[in-house]
Design a protein around this nucleic acid. Structure first.
Length: 589
RNA sequence: GGGGGCGUGGUGUAGUGGUUAACACGCCGGCCUGUCAAGCCGGAGAUCGCGGGUUCGAUACCCGUCGCUCCCGCCA
C-alpha cells in the first residue's frame, strides 16, 4: 500500500510514529516559510506541516501543490503546539510533519469547490459527478447507503433469509409501468424487458421452496421522473412462505428500527409504527402515504354544508360527494396573493376552486362563502374543526378523490410553510386494508389496485361474489414523512381464487397464459401460501440522510429527462447495431 | 402530454430599457515560519444559455428554443 494510515485515523497515541499518508489536497495554506496542507481521503482530514527549514527539496515541491493534487506524505506524527489544536477536526490534536512529499498526480482546478458544502448547479454536479462524489457530503451519503444495505443483509441472514439473484433480462408484460425493452439479436423481432421488479420471479422461488428470499434488486420503469423516482432504482425485494400479514409487518418494523439505529443521520419520530387503514388515511390526511408528524387533518363538513345556502356544496352532497376542510392556524392574515397561491395548489390537484373562510382576529368571519352559512352553522363548523380566531379554513367539495388530493396537497404545503413538521425526524406508519380493486370500472371490469396476485383478506373472499367493490386486500404500504417507502401483499397461492380474480378483472385464460403462463402453471405444482414486501432503498436512504431527493444518495443518477450528463447517455448507435438487432428507426432521425 | 421556477466570469449571487455589468469565493502573481474558510497587495477572467422580435438602444420586455428543476398526468 502507498499509505500506512488513513487521514481520519491518527490520534495522540500515534505521536512520534513515522507514517505514510496518501490522499487529496483539501486545502493549502502557504505562510511563506511554513506550508500547511489539509490532506483528505475517504476517512478524514489530517493537517500536514511542511517547514522550509526541515527539507528544502520537500518545501520546493510543496510550493507547487494546488487543491485536489494527489499526494503521498511520509512524515512524523506530532502533537500540535499548545493552543494550536483544532477542536473541529477529529485529528485536530495532532499533525504530520512531512519529511517527504510526493506528487502522485496533479489536478486541474475543479469546476466547483470540493472542500466546501455549497449550492452548485446540478447540471455541473452531474456532468462532473466523479468530482461531486468526492465531496464529503456525498461520500457520507453513500456510506449511509452502504451501512443500511449491510445491516439489511446481516439482519435477514440471521433470520434465515437467503439472497438470490434474478435476471435483468426478462419478459415484458403490458401490465403496470412502461417497460425498458432490449431487442434480441438471436431471436429476430423479439424483445426482453428489464424487470419493473422481480415480482414473478420471487413468487416462483417460493414455489421452488426457498421459503425466505431477499435481494437488493435493481428495478427499471420507463416512466416520467420525480424527486423520488428514477428510471432505475433499488428495492429490498423480499418474499416469505407460510407467512401472515402481521409477520411481515413486524419483521420489517424491526428491520427499519435497526437500520435507522445503525445507519441513519435522522432519528425516529416515534418508536411504534402506527397502523392506519387505507380508508382512515385518506379520510384524515387525504393521502395513502400521510406525513404523521403534524396535524392539520381533514374534517368532514358534508352534513353542515348540505344545509347551507351555497349551491356548489349542496349539489356536491346531493351527488353523494363530500365537503371537507382543513383549519390552518394563524393564517387568517393571509393576503389575497397568498390565498391565490394556495388555490393554485388546489387547482393543480384537480379542484375547481378553493372556498375559504377567515376567522378574523377581532371576531367575525370573512370569505365569500361565509354568507351562505347561518350563525348556528358557522358555529358548528368552528366547533367541529376546533378553530380559533385568526385561523383560516380551506374547503374542498368535489368527488372524494379530488377532495383528498386537493386538501392533502394543501395540508402538506401548510405543514411545511408553518414549520409544523419536525423535519429532523423520521415518522413511519403502516397503511393496511387497501381495497382489492380500484373504485372505477375499466371497460366494465374491475382493475386491481395493486396487482392481480394480491390476496383478498380471508374473511372478505365471500364478498367477491356479492360485492367485489367492497373487498379489502392483504396489501400493505409503509410510509415515512409523506413518502411511500415499501409496499407488499399476501399473494394468492390457490388456483380457484386466482381464476375468480382474473374473471373479475376481465383477464382471459388466453391472456393470462400468454403473460403469466409460467407462473400460473407453477402454482399448480404445490405453491405454498406466501407474501412479501419491497422497501425502496433509495427513498429510505434519502430520508435517513435528510436529503430532499434520491439523486443525492445514488452514485450516478439521471436527470429529470432521463439522461446521464456525464456519459451523455442515451446516445445514438451505429447502423450496424440496428441491423444486428433486426430493428430500424420509425422515421429519419 | 400539461403547468410552475431557474439560466449573468470557474462557482455562488447582485443588478438595470441607456457610459466601463457589481460583489464574494475560486484562479494567477507577489509578500509572509503556526495557519486551519489564513491574512495583506496586485492581476486575469462574462459575446448576461441560444435564436428571433419590440425599441434609437435589450442582460433586462415579448415570442420561440435548449438545458436543469418541482408538480399534475403517468408510476399495477
Amino acid at each position: 500500500m502507498l499509505k500506512s494510515h488513513n487521514c481520519g485515523q491518527l490520534r495522540e497515541e500515534h505521536i512520534n510514529q513515522t507514517v505514510t499518508l496518501a490522499g487529496w489536497v483539501n486545502r493549502r495554506r502557504d505562510m511563506g516559510g511554513v506550508i500547511f496542507i489539509d490532506l483528505r481521503d475517504r476517512d478524514g482530514i489530517t493537517q500536514v506541516v511542511i517547514n522550509a527549514g526541515h527539507s528544502q527539496a520537500t518545501f520546493d515541491t510543496a510550493e507547487q501543490i494546488r487543491n485536489e493534487y494527489v499526494l503521498q506524505i511520509k512524515g512524523t506524527v506530532g502533537r500540535r503546539p499548545e493552543g494550536q489544536e483544532n477542536a473541529e477536526m477529529t485529528t485536530g490534536d495532532i499533525e504530520v510533519t512531512a519529511d517527504e512529499v510526493t506528487i502522485l498526480n496533479k489536478a486541474k482546478t475543479p469546476p466547483f469547490a470540493i472542500n466546501r458544502d455549497h449550492n452548485v448547479d446540478e447540471t455541473v454536479r452531474l456532468k462532473y459527478r466523479y468530482l461531486d462524489l468526492r465531496r464529503q457530503k456525498m461520500q457520507s451519503n453513500l456510506i449511509i447507503r452502504h451501512k443500511a444495505i449491510k445491516f439489511i443483509r446481516d439482519f435477514l441472514d440471521e433470520r434465515g433469509f437467503i439472497e438470490i439473484e434474478t435476471p435483468i433480462l426478462f419478459k415484458s408484460t403490458p401490465e403496470g409501468a412502461r417497460d425498458y425493452l432490449v431487442p434480441s439479436r438471436v431471436q429476430p423481432g423479439k424483445f426482453y424487458a428489464l424487470p419493473q421488479s422481480p415480482q414473478q420471479l420471487k413468487q416462483l422461488l417460493m414455489v421452488a421452496g426457498y421459503e425466505r428470499y431477499f435481494q437488493i434488486a435493481r428495478c427499471f420503469r420507463d416512466e416520467d421522473l420525480r424527486a423520488d423516482r428514477q428510471p432505475e432504482f433499488t428495492q429490498l425485494d423480499m418474499e416469505i412462505s407460510f407467512v401472515e400479514r402481521d409477520d411481515i409487518l413486524n419483521l420489517i418494523e424491526e428491520l427499519m428500527k435497526g437500520m435507522i439505529k445503525t445507519a441513519s443521520r435522522l432519528p425516529l419520530a416515534w418508536d411504534e409504527f402506527p397502523r392506519l387503514s387505507y380508508h382512515e388515511a385518506m379520510e384524515r390526511f387525504g393521502s395513502d402515504k400521510p406525513d404523521l408528524r403534524f396535524g392539520l387533518e381533514l374534517t368532514d363538513l358534508s352534513d353542515i354544508a348540505a344545509e347551507s345556502g351555497f349551491k356548489v356544496f349542496t349539489d356536491t352532497v346531493k351527488a353523494g360527494n363530500p365537503v371537507k376542510a382543513i383549519c390552518v392556524p394563524g393564517a387568517a392574515s393571509y393576503s389575497r396573493k397568498q390565498i391565490d397561491d394556495l388555490e393554485a395548489i388546489a387547482k393543480a390537484n384537480g379542484a375547481k376552486g378553493m372556498p375559504w373562510i377567515m376567522l378574523k382576529q377581532e371576531g367575525g368571519v370573512k370569505g365569500f362563502i361565509s354568507k351562505f352559512f347561518s350563525d348556528e352553522q358557522m358555529n358548528a363548523i368552528i366547533e367541529r374543526m376546533d378553530a380559533k380566531a385568526g385561523d383560516l379554513l380551506l374547503f374542498a367539495s368535489d368527488s372524494k378523490w379530488v377532495v383528498y388530493a386537493a386538501l392533502g396537497a394543501l395540508r402538506t404545503e401548510m405543514g411545511t410553510r408553518l414549520g409544523l413538521k419536525d423535519t429532523g425526524t423520521l415518522g413511519f406508519c403502516w397503511i393496511v386494508d387497501f381495497p382489492l380493486f380500484e373504485e372505477n370500472l375499466e371497460n366494465g371490469f374491475y382493475a386491481p389496485s395493486h396487482h392481480m396476485f394480491t390476496a383478498p383478506k380471508p374473511d372478505h373472499i365471500p364478498m367477491l361474489d356479492s360485492d367485489p367493490a367492497s373487498v379489502l386486500s392483504d396489501q400493505y404500504d409503509l410510509a415515512c414523512n409523506g413518502f411511500e417507502v415499501a409496499g407488499g401483499s399476501i399473494r394468492i397461492h390457490e388456483r380457484g381464487l386466482q381464476r375468480k380474480i382474473m374473471e373479475l378483472i376481465g383477464f382471459s385464460i388466453e391472456e393470462a397464459k400468454e403473460q403469466f403462463g409460467h407462473l400460473l402453471e407453477a402454482f399448480e405444482y404445490g405453491a405454498p401460501p406466501h407474501g412479501g414486501i419491497a422497501p425502496g432503498i433509495d427513498r429510505l436512504v434519502a430520508l435517513m440522510a435528510g436529503e430532499p431527493n434520491i439523486r443525492e444518495v445514488m452514485a450516478f443518477p439521471k436527470t429529470a429527462q432521463a439522461t446521464d450528463l456525464m456519459s451523455e447517455s442515451p446516445s445514438f448507435v451505429a447502423q450496424q447495431q440496428w441491423d444486428d438487432l433486426h430493428i430500424q428507426p420509425a422515421k429519419a432521425m
